[in-house]
């Protein structure tokens, strides 16, 4: 029995346990079958990529000239390429880079897009400036811009952070700053509609500070489009990274990523189709499972859909 603290004499019925938001979200998320399949597939991919190289201890860059273009066998589960490098080891190593690029670039895109969209939508004074800036970024052609940035900054970043980390930072940053605009526009539109709702006015009349209004009342209500942008953003980043590798401006040639493996394998499709199929399948499965997870999260975060 809870004791009344403020001195009121009425006995209270034992109250229901406070429902926590994330508890509810989890219950609803579990009910979304597609999302659960997505979680399982995605977890398998992440575990394989993280722990796989410890079990399959073949150096992905070791070229075994006696075993070139071999078909899948016990020694080489995905076969080997034309230089005799083990494909399975390359897919595992490439996955680490590709997943890291995808998620980091998505995080940059979403953070930047949401921040700029919310500020532009909520504060009228900032709207004009921020939206013209967004238009300016939208008008820049992405691939040529990528090429220029790569050429200008590649060497200085390489010398600062080392060849791999330098290129990683550059790629992630470049993808991030060239893809946040769609998110910003969608978020701004939603914020413009939400901020005129009466519950925002009610929060103002209570004396809620503006940053709290933004975080507590506006952000949760624009979460759906942000989730959608995020899932699309991961797929987009993985594909852009492949395109950069294809143009020879991504990671160094001997540094495997999924995009790079597909590009390198495309000329040998007749001889060893597995070289394209496995990394391609990995990209597709990752993007698909992330999309399902995003779909499930969006539904679970909306209390109106929850419990249906």
């Amino acid at each position: 029995m809870t004791e009344a603290v403020n001195g009121s004499s009425t006995a209270r019925p034992t109250r229901e346990k406070q429902r926590s938001l994330w508890g509810d979200v989890w219950i609803q998320f579990r009910a979304h079958r597609g999302a659960m399949v997505g979680v399982v597939v995605f977890t398998v991919i992440v575990l394989a990529v993280v722990f796989g190289p410890m079990i399959h201890t073949v150096d992905p860059t070791y070229a075994d000239y006696r075993a070139r273009n071999v078909s899948p066998s016990l020694d080489h589960p995905f076969g080997t390429d034309n230089l005799g490098r083990d494909m399975f080891a390359q897919v595992l190593a490439g996955g680490r880079v590709t997943l890291a690029v995808g998620f980091t670039a998505m995080a940059i895109t979403i953070t930047l897009g949401t921040l700029i969209g919310m500020l532009a939508g909520y504060f009228r004074r900032l709207d004009g400036v921020l939206m013209r800036m967004t238009d300016m970024f939208l008008a820049l052609p992405q691939i040529p811009l990528l090429l220029v940035i790569m050429l200008v900054f590649r060497d200085s970043l390489r010398s600062l952070f080392g060849p791999e980390a330098g290129i990683f930072l550059l790629i992630v940053f470049v993808i991030g700053i060239t893809t946040w605009m769609q998110t910003a526009r969608i978020v701004r539109g939603e914020v413009l509609a939400i901020k005129e709702r009466e519950f925002v006015l009610a929060a103002k009349s209570i004396g809620t500070r503006e940053h709290r209004i933004l975080l507590r009342h506006i952000l949760p209500n624009v979460l759906s489009p942000i989730m959608v942008s995020a899932t699309i953003g991961i797929a987009n980043a993985i594909i852009t990274e492949s395109a950069l590798s294809f143009l020879g401006l991504g990671f160094p040639p001997d540094f495997p990523t999924w995009g790079r493996l597909v590009v390198d394998g495309k000329d040998f499709m007749d001889l060893t189709p597995a070289r394209v199929i496995w990394p391609g399948l990995a990209i597709s499965l990752t993007v698909l499972s992330v999309n399902f997870i995003g779909d499930g999260l969006r539904d679970a975060l909306d209390p109106r859909i929850r419990g249906r």
């Binding site: 009466e198 929060a203 209500n221 909306d302």
Partner: peptide, 10 residues
């Protein structure tokens, strides 16, 4: 419109 749909009544 006057109640935030993402918050509990409490």
């Amino acid at each position: 419109a006057c109640l935030n749909p993402r918050m509990t009544i409490g």
